[in-house]
Design a protein around this nucleic acid. Sequence first.
DNA 1: TATGAATGAGAGTTCATTCAT
DNA 2: GATGAATGAACTCTCATTCAT
Lengths: 212, 212, 212, 212
Amino acid sequence: MRTKNEEKRQEIVNAAISLFSEKGYYKTSIKDISDKAHMSSGTFYLYYKSKDDLILDIYHEVHEILGKYLNEKMEMSYSSPEERLVAVSCFLVSKYLENKKLSVILLTRTIGINRHAENEYYNTFSKSVANFAGLIQKIPEADYMDIRLTATFYVQAMGVAATKWMLADPSTRPDFYEVVFMTLRYHLRALTIEIPDTKLREYISKYVTVTE
Amino acid sequence: MRTKNEEKRQEIVNAAISLFSEKGYYKTSIKDISDKAHMSSGTFYLYYKSKDDLILDIYHEVHEILGKYLNEKMEMSYSSPEERLVAVSCFLVSKYLENKKLSVILLTRTIGINRHAENEYYNTFSKSVANFAGLIQKIPEADYMDIRLTATFYVQAMGVAATKWMLADPSTRPDFYEVVFMTLRYHLRALTIEIPDTKLREYISKYVTVTE
Amino acid sequence: MRTKNEEKRQEIVNAAISLFSEKGYYKTSIKDISDKAHMSSGTFYLYYKSKDDLILDIYHEVHEILGKYLNEKMEMSYSSPEERLVAVSCFLVSKYLENKKLSVILLTRTIGINRHAENEYYNTFSKSVANFAGLIQKIPEADYMDIRLTATFYVQAMGVAATKWMLADPSTRPDFYEVVFMTLRYHLRALTIEIPDTKLREYISKYVTVTE
Amino acid sequence: MRTKNEEKRQEIVNAAISLFSEKGYYKTSIKDISDKAHMSSGTFYLYYKSKDDLILDIYHEVHEILGKYLNEKMEMSYSSPEERLVAVSCFLVSKYLENKKLSVILLTRTIGINRHAENEYYNTFSKSVANFAGLIQKIPEADYMDIRLTATFYVQAMGVAATKWMLADPSTRPDFYEVVFMTLRYHLRALTIEIPDTKLREYISKYVTVTE
DNA sequence: TATGAATGAGAGTTCATTCAT
DNA sequence: GATGAATGAACTCTCATTCAT
């Protein structure tokens, strides 16, 4: 795998992401996917050896998008560890919004597919948790007890905020920046990290990269 | 439905909860369930008219366990609204632990089954969120921006704490009381609700009803 | 069989006739029948040893109603063999109307159930054909070639006339007596049996026993 | 439907016609049909989306065979309307014989399957009745009262004649031409349509297209 | 490489029949 | 005699996967 015509492969992945996020893994058939990707169901099997193989690849993709991308963002230089935490948080929620369908799969439709997919999911999630744990630990004033548990609350909250906003009625939902602000304020306060509201808003408008 | 031999019905529900939490809804067949419940697959259909009907019944059961039970706990008298919030939080995580498999279904395996099941899930979850929103709003010192978003973080965290602990290696995981303490401390602080650690621990040991 | 509580047995038969004529043999379940007969499905089997046994019994019932009844009518004394033919024809269509549901089963829903039922059906039908063949043969002026074929056309026509009228829209269908008149006139003419219209109508109003 | 490999489709139809005519709709399973058509049961569903869909298609086929074919025959030129009536009658019974199994389904096994199938059946039958009504009405000397009822007797008789002959013991049954002659003579006489026997026989040997 | 017809195991469901009570 | 819960074979239909072309 991963060697042949990468364009076709991407077509499959896009079709699958779209359908999985809409109907879920089990209600999506290979025929649905290959139809949407403009190919025959036989061709699908030239690129993936099974439906399971496909979902695993999708998780790898998430892994890359979130993992590599966040790593890169984390290594940029910031004026303080606080700004770094806020910046990376903003990148994460932005990335969720940029890949809405993928996020829906990741955040709401993952589990129950099979052990492999679940493992992939946990790996991706754990990686994020570890990343954020590192960021938090670099902030001297941060007060917490179990860093893993704390980081889990934190990462989960980013997902909750993004999901709630994405699935909400566009005509009545608040401004996305405001949601991010409320989310970060809540969790920074839980960590006793003090950032003035104006400063926090400033960071957010600087690092949230999604245009509504 | 709901009229015949309630014992048999419960056997089915128990078998289903066990299998759904282990393998997920789609990987569990009616035959799996009826085998585990020591009956023929035809007998299953004397108690439930379809597989969907069963999962809905299970969600109703969750609804009742969590909904009615928490309501009752909320109406007990406490010395302060802070104690009430802590007490109900403790009851919720205790209830999760008491019904481990059910909680796994609720917290990790719900979505992607079908619209009805998802609706049931959202109802149950929304109900909890609304309950906790009410509890938080009764605490004058609590500082938050969007009460729904805030309560969502809070309720989600109870699930995360319980799930993480349940799925962790029993030989190395921390004491459950400690996990609950860390969780509540984190979120109370986010809400600027001040309860001294000793007081909080006291409440927890009073209201967490699960014996490991 | 045929020995136990005859009342219960009749309840079953009535329920079955009603349901079979409405939904057909295969779409009617034993539960449907036993529900309608106000008994449990187990009780059904005290009276009939199978669903097939029941349909056979129903055909026996038809056999009796049509066979014995017509025989009796045929042995009455009439002024002429022509009158006898007309009279018995009238009794036949009247009997169809008197037992609408049974007739629907007999005339439209019979075949395809099983070999036994088909045999029963053919027996009943053959018996009628033989009867009418006898009646026709007693009329010296009747001109025909193959008496069996001729009698078959004749008997079939009685069924067609009755069925068409029963299933027609009551607000627009013609008077039943008129339908019988048209039917008999057609077939008597085919047989070159001359009965003046007034005489024929007289016979019909005398022998058609159904009140609309 | 109706697009893929038409040969396979016909194999299914042939298998189904054969089995339905032998055992009836309900006693014939998809497995029976697909076995007889030399394919797996899954393949069946590539050609028909359900068992119901198949029986409807078979009725459509009858519709076409009888409807279009008879229309065509009716539009041929004949020396008189009497000859036209006889000719078309002969084509109808010939067609029945040419498609024995199909005729058995059409003439005896129709009802009780489902509403759609019944409607199809009535449509086909009504079409024939209307056709023959038209033919009869074009004969000035024809004497009848209700043209629909009359045409119904006539069409039904064609079916009866064909069926009786087909199901009769080949070693003892009369010559088919003779059966057609008797049938037509009976009904023409009922309509007071006078055709000399020699003329009628001539027509029949001209228009009956089946070789025993 | 690409196709899509073909496969067949396995799913959910029904229901005639049995039998302990 | 009467019940109705229980059975399990048999049904229709789906779909991931294969393979000849």
